[in-house]
Protein backbone atom coordinates (compact mmCIF):
# COMPACT_ATOMS: atom_id res chain seq x y z
CA UNK A 1 0.00 0.00 0.00
CA UNK A 2 2.86 2.36 0.86
CA UNK A 3 4.38 1.64 -2.50
CA UNK A 4 1.14 2.34 -4.26
CA UNK A 5 0.60 5.64 -2.45
CA UNK A 6 4.18 6.76 -3.01
CA UNK A 7 4.02 5.95 -6.72
CA UNK A 8 0.67 7.71 -7.02
CA UNK A 9 1.96 10.82 -5.26
CA UNK A 10 4.98 10.94 -7.53
CA UNK A 11 2.71 10.25 -10.52
CA UNK A 12 0.46 13.19 -9.64
CA UNK A 13 3.46 15.54 -9.58
CA UNK A 14 4.65 14.20 -12.91
CA UNK A 15 1.09 14.29 -14.22
CA UNK A 16 0.85 17.98 -13.30
CA UNK A 17 3.76 18.68 -15.64
CA UNK A 18 2.17 16.61 -18.37
CA UNK A 19 -1.10 18.44 -17.81
CA UNK A 20 0.58 21.81 -18.18
CA UNK A 21 2.35 20.69 -21.32
CA UNK A 22 -0.82 19.15 -22.72
CA UNK A 23 -2.79 22.29 -21.90
CA UNK A 24 -0.61 24.51 -24.09
CA UNK A 25 -0.57 21.84 -26.75
CA UNK A 26 -4.35 21.48 -26.78
CA UNK A 27 -4.84 25.22 -26.81
CA UNK A 28 -2.84 25.59 -30.01
CA UNK A 29 -4.66 22.68 -31.56
CA UNK A 30 -8.09 23.83 -30.51
CA UNK A 31 -7.91 27.21 -32.18
CA UNK A 32 -5.44 26.72 -35.03
CA UNK A 33 -5.88 23.01 -35.87
CA UNK A 34 -2.11 22.57 -35.79
CA UNK A 35 -0.67 19.58 -33.98
CA UNK A 36 2.51 21.08 -32.62
CA UNK A 37 5.25 18.48 -32.63
CA UNK A 38 7.69 21.13 -31.38
CA UNK A 39 5.83 21.69 -28.13
CA UNK A 40 8.35 19.60 -26.23
CA UNK A 41 11.14 21.69 -27.72
CA UNK A 42 9.44 24.89 -26.54
CA UNK A 43 9.39 23.39 -23.08
CA UNK A 44 13.02 22.37 -23.37
CA UNK A 45 13.87 25.92 -24.42
CA UNK A 46 12.12 27.13 -21.26
CA UNK A 47 14.17 24.74 -19.10
CA UNK A 48 17.47 25.73 -20.69
CA UNK A 49 16.66 29.43 -20.42
CA UNK A 50 15.87 28.75 -16.77
CA UNK A 51 19.39 27.37 -16.43
CA UNK A 52 20.79 30.64 -17.74
CA UNK A 53 18.46 32.87 -15.71
CA UNK A 54 18.41 30.98 -12.43
CA UNK A 55 21.73 29.17 -12.24
CA UNK A 56 24.12 31.34 -14.21
CA UNK A 57 22.65 34.78 -13.47
CA UNK A 58 21.01 33.87 -10.16
CA UNK A 59 17.88 35.91 -10.79
CA UNK A 60 14.66 35.82 -8.78
CA UNK A 61 12.45 32.90 -9.80
CA UNK A 62 9.29 34.97 -10.28
CA UNK A 63 11.14 37.38 -12.50
CA UNK A 64 12.71 34.47 -14.39
CA UNK A 65 9.34 32.82 -14.99
CA UNK A 66 7.85 36.04 -16.32
CA UNK A 67 10.85 36.79 -18.52
CA UNK A 68 11.11 33.26 -19.93
CA UNK A 69 7.36 33.05 -20.48
CA UNK A 70 7.59 36.31 -22.39
CA UNK A 71 10.54 35.14 -24.53
CA UNK A 72 8.99 31.79 -25.42
CA UNK A 73 5.59 33.41 -26.05
CA UNK A 74 7.24 35.93 -28.37
CA UNK A 75 8.84 33.04 -30.21
CA UNK A 76 5.44 31.40 -30.56
CA UNK A 77 3.90 34.55 -32.01
CA UNK A 78 6.87 35.03 -34.34
CA UNK A 79 6.51 31.44 -35.54
CA UNK A 80 2.88 32.07 -36.30
CA UNK A 81 3.52 35.15 -38.40
CA UNK A 82 6.70 33.85 -40.02
CA UNK A 83 5.89 30.23 -40.73
CA UNK A 84 2.40 29.13 -39.81
CA UNK A 85 0.43 31.91 -41.45
CA UNK A 86 1.60 31.16 -45.00
CA UNK A 87 0.68 27.54 -44.37
CA UNK A 88 -3.02 28.07 -43.69
CA UNK A 89 -4.95 25.81 -46.00
CA UNK A 90 -2.14 23.29 -46.46
CA UNK A 91 -2.90 19.64 -45.73
CA UNK A 92 -2.94 18.65 -42.08
CA UNK A 93 0.24 16.64 -42.14
CA UNK A 94 2.32 19.26 -43.97
CA UNK A 95 1.74 21.53 -41.04
CA UNK A 96 2.71 18.80 -38.59
CA UNK A 97 5.89 18.27 -40.57
CA UNK A 98 6.74 21.96 -40.39
CA UNK A 99 6.57 21.74 -36.63
CA UNK A 100 8.90 18.75 -36.84
CA UNK A 101 11.29 21.00 -38.75
CA UNK A 102 10.99 23.64 -36.03
CA UNK A 103 11.67 20.98 -33.41
CA UNK A 104 14.85 19.90 -35.21
CA UNK A 105 16.08 23.50 -35.46
CA UNK A 106 15.42 24.32 -31.78
CA UNK A 107 17.21 21.14 -30.73
CA UNK A 108 20.23 21.85 -32.89
CA UNK A 109 20.30 25.43 -31.61
CA UNK A 110 20.27 24.31 -27.96
CA UNK A 111 23.01 21.77 -28.59
CA UNK A 112 25.15 24.45 -30.21
CA UNK A 113 24.53 26.93 -27.40
CA UNK A 114 24.56 24.79 -24.29
CA UNK A 115 26.72 21.86 -25.36
CA UNK A 116 26.00 18.17 -24.79
CA UNK A 117 26.77 17.89 -21.05
CA UNK A 118 23.87 17.02 -18.76
CA UNK A 119 22.99 19.60 -16.08
CA UNK A 120 21.45 18.83 -12.75
CA UNK A 121 18.19 20.02 -11.24
CA UNK A 122 17.65 23.75 -10.73
CA UNK A 123 17.32 24.48 -7.02
CA UNK A 124 15.44 27.76 -7.19
CA UNK A 125 12.28 26.52 -5.44
CA UNK A 126 12.15 25.74 -1.70
CA UNK A 127 13.76 22.36 -1.05
CA UNK A 128 12.74 19.87 1.59
CA UNK A 129 9.86 17.50 1.96
CA UNK A 130 6.64 16.69 3.71
CA UNK A 131 6.53 13.38 5.57
CA UNK A 132 3.12 11.81 6.03
CA UNK A 133 3.70 8.46 7.65
CA UNK A 134 5.87 6.54 5.23
CA UNK A 135 4.86 8.83 2.40
CA UNK A 136 7.46 11.36 1.27
CA UNK A 137 6.28 14.35 -0.75
CA UNK A 138 8.91 16.95 -1.71
CA UNK A 139 7.81 20.59 -1.59
CA UNK A 140 8.74 20.91 -5.26
CA UNK A 141 6.08 18.36 -6.17
CA UNK A 142 3.46 20.26 -4.18
CA UNK A 143 4.42 23.59 -5.76
CA UNK A 144 4.27 21.98 -9.16
CA UNK A 145 0.78 20.69 -8.50
CA UNK A 146 -0.35 24.11 -7.23
CA UNK A 147 1.14 26.01 -10.17
CA UNK A 148 -0.45 23.64 -12.60
CA UNK A 149 -3.85 23.94 -10.87
CA UNK A 150 -3.51 27.72 -10.88
CA UNK A 151 -2.73 27.64 -14.59
CA UNK A 152 -5.91 25.69 -15.20
CA UNK A 153 -8.04 28.11 -13.19
CA UNK A 154 -6.54 31.15 -14.91
CA UNK A 155 -7.17 29.50 -18.22
CA UNK A 156 -10.73 28.73 -17.40
CA UNK A 157 -11.45 32.32 -16.37
CA UNK A 158 -9.59 33.63 -19.40
CA UNK A 159 -11.61 31.48 -21.73
CA UNK A 160 -14.99 32.17 -20.17
CA UNK A 161 -14.83 35.85 -19.35
CA UNK A 162 -12.46 37.76 -21.59
CA UNK A 163 -13.21 38.99 -25.08
CA UNK A 164 -10.19 37.35 -26.64
CA UNK A 165 -11.08 34.10 -24.86
CA UNK A 166 -14.56 34.30 -26.32
CA UNK A 167 -13.08 35.00 -29.75
CA UNK A 168 -10.81 31.99 -29.42
CA UNK A 169 -13.75 29.78 -28.60
CA UNK A 170 -15.66 31.24 -31.52
CA UNK A 171 -12.84 30.59 -33.95
CA UNK A 172 -12.46 27.05 -32.64
CA UNK A 173 -16.20 26.47 -33.05
CA UNK A 174 -16.57 27.83 -36.55
CA UNK A 175 -13.88 29.81 -38.29
CA UNK A 176 -16.00 31.25 -41.11
CA UNK A 177 -18.83 32.31 -38.85
CA UNK A 178 -16.41 33.92 -36.41
CA UNK A 179 -14.65 35.77 -39.21
CA UNK A 180 -18.00 36.98 -40.54
CA UNK A 181 -18.82 38.36 -37.09
CA UNK A 182 -15.71 40.50 -37.20
CA UNK A 183 -13.24 38.30 -35.31
CA UNK A 184 -9.80 38.35 -36.87
CA UNK A 185 -8.76 34.70 -37.07
CA UNK A 186 -5.19 35.74 -37.66
CA UNK A 187 -5.05 37.67 -34.41
CA UNK A 188 -6.68 34.80 -32.56
CA UNK A 189 -4.20 32.32 -34.02
CA UNK A 190 -1.29 34.55 -32.99
CA UNK A 191 -2.65 34.85 -29.47
CA UNK A 192 -3.16 31.08 -29.27
CA UNK A 193 0.39 30.43 -30.37
CA UNK A 194 1.61 32.96 -27.87
CA UNK A 195 -0.34 31.48 -24.97
CA UNK A 196 0.47 27.91 -25.96
CA UNK A 197 4.18 28.70 -26.10
CA UNK A 198 3.90 30.68 -22.87
CA UNK A 199 2.45 27.64 -21.13
CA UNK A 200 5.33 25.56 -22.47
CA UNK A 201 7.82 28.13 -21.21
CA UNK A 202 6.34 28.20 -17.71
CA UNK A 203 6.12 24.41 -17.67
CA UNK A 204 9.75 24.32 -18.78
CA UNK A 205 10.91 26.43 -15.84
CA UNK A 206 8.87 24.33 -13.41
CA UNK A 207 10.09 21.12 -14.98
CA UNK A 208 13.69 22.30 -14.67
CA UNK A 209 13.09 22.51 -10.94
CA UNK A 210 11.48 19.07 -10.84
CA UNK A 211 13.50 16.80 -13.12
CA UNK A 212 16.83 15.44 -11.95
CA UNK A 213 18.66 16.14 -15.17
CA UNK A 214 18.36 18.77 -17.88
CA UNK A 215 19.59 17.62 -21.26
CA UNK A 216 18.38 17.27 -24.83
CA UNK A 217 16.28 14.23 -23.96
CA UNK A 218 13.98 16.58 -22.14
CA UNK A 219 11.97 17.20 -25.30
CA UNK A 220 10.65 13.66 -24.90
CA UNK A 221 8.24 15.15 -22.40
CA UNK A 222 6.54 16.78 -25.38
CA UNK A 223 5.82 13.29 -26.68
CA UNK A 224 4.15 12.54 -23.34
CA UNK A 225 1.76 15.39 -23.98
CA UNK A 226 0.35 13.42 -26.89
CA UNK A 227 -1.18 10.59 -24.87
CA UNK A 228 -2.24 13.07 -22.21
CA UNK A 229 -4.03 15.24 -24.72
CA UNK A 230 -5.43 12.27 -26.61
CA UNK A 231 -6.90 10.54 -23.60
CA UNK A 232 -8.69 13.70 -22.56
CA UNK A 233 -9.70 14.61 -26.08
CA UNK A 234 -7.48 16.58 -28.39
CA UNK A 235 -9.62 19.72 -28.36
CA UNK A 236 -10.65 19.74 -24.72
CA UNK A 237 -8.95 21.84 -22.06
CA UNK A 238 -10.46 19.95 -19.11
CA UNK A 239 -9.51 16.71 -20.82
CA UNK A 240 -5.87 17.73 -21.01
CA UNK A 241 -5.69 18.04 -17.25
CA UNK A 242 -7.33 14.70 -16.61
CA UNK A 243 -5.26 13.06 -19.34
CA UNK A 244 -2.03 14.47 -17.92
CA UNK A 245 -2.76 13.11 -14.47
CA UNK A 246 -3.84 9.72 -15.81
CA UNK A 247 -0.68 9.36 -17.89
CA UNK A 248 1.58 10.54 -15.07
CA UNK A 249 0.13 8.18 -12.48
CA UNK A 250 -0.12 5.17 -14.80
CA UNK A 251 3.46 5.65 -15.97
CA UNK A 252 4.85 5.69 -12.45
CA UNK A 253 2.71 2.72 -11.43
CA UNK A 254 3.77 0.76 -14.51
CA UNK A 255 7.44 1.55 -13.97
CA UNK A 256 7.14 0.62 -10.29
CA UNK A 257 5.30 -2.66 -10.76
CA UNK A 258 6.46 -3.95 -14.19
CA UNK A 259 9.83 -2.23 -14.63
CA UNK A 260 11.13 0.90 -16.32
CA UNK A 261 11.08 -0.54 -19.81
CA UNK A 262 7.27 -0.68 -19.80
CA UNK A 263 6.80 3.02 -19.14
CA UNK A 264 6.47 4.28 -22.73
CA UNK A 265 4.44 1.28 -23.76
CA UNK A 266 1.93 1.73 -20.96
CA UNK A 267 1.43 5.44 -21.62
CA UNK A 268 0.98 4.99 -25.33
CA UNK A 269 -0.84 1.68 -24.97
CA UNK A 270 -3.39 3.32 -22.67
CA UNK A 271 -3.84 6.04 -25.26
CA UNK A 272 -4.30 3.42 -27.95
CA UNK A 273 -7.02 1.67 -25.97
CA UNK A 274 -8.84 4.92 -25.25
CA UNK A 275 -8.63 5.83 -28.93
CA UNK A 276 -10.16 2.52 -29.91
CA UNK A 277 -12.95 2.68 -27.35
CA UNK A 278 -13.65 6.40 -27.46
CA UNK A 279 -11.94 7.71 -30.59
CA UNK A 280 -12.35 11.32 -29.53
CA UNK A 281 -11.12 10.93 -25.97
CA UNK A 282 -13.10 11.54 -22.82
CA UNK A 283 -14.05 15.15 -23.41
CA UNK A 284 -13.28 15.67 -27.10
CA UNK A 285 -15.83 16.85 -29.64
CA UNK A 286 -17.39 14.02 -31.55
CA UNK A 287 -16.99 14.29 -35.25
CA UNK A 288 -20.18 13.21 -36.95
CA UNK A 289 -18.59 11.70 -40.03
CA UNK A 290 -19.04 7.95 -40.23
CA UNK A 291 -17.65 5.99 -43.09
Amino acid sequence: MDTFLQLTASGIALGSVYAMVALGFVLVFKSTDVLNFAHGEFLMLGSFLALTFLVEWNLNIVFAIVAIAFIVAALGVALHYGIMKPLVGQPLFSVVLVTIGIAIVIRAFLLMTYGPLERGRILALPQGQLDIGNLVIPYVDIILFLVSSAAVVIFYIFFKSTTIGLQMRAVAENLEAAAAMGVSPNKVFAVSWGIGALMAGVAGVMYGNFTAVIDLNLAAIGLRAFPAAMIGGLDSVEGAILGGLIVGVSEQLAAGYFGGDFRDVVAFGLMFVVLMVRPYGFFGTKDLIRV
Binding site: L35, M230, L234, D264, V265, G269, M271, L275, Y280
Partner: peptide, 16 residues
Protein backbone atom coordinates in the same frame (compact mmCIF):
# COMPACT_ATOMS: atom_id res chain seq x y z
CA UNK B 1 -4.22 13.11 -36.11
CA UNK B 2 -5.84 10.46 -33.94
CA UNK B 3 -4.52 7.82 -36.27
CA UNK B 4 -1.11 9.49 -36.15
CA UNK B 5 -1.15 9.04 -32.36
CA UNK B 6 -2.33 5.44 -32.54
CA UNK B 7 0.60 4.58 -34.79
CA UNK B 8 2.96 6.26 -32.34
CA UNK B 9 1.81 3.64 -29.84
CA UNK B 10 2.69 0.96 -32.40
CA UNK B 11 6.18 2.46 -32.62
CA UNK B 12 6.88 2.11 -28.91
CA UNK B 13 5.34 -1.35 -28.76
CA UNK B 14 7.56 -2.54 -31.62
CA UNK B 15 10.71 -1.27 -29.92
CA UNK B 16 9.91 -3.13 -26.70
Amino acid sequence: LYLFMATLAVHFGAIL
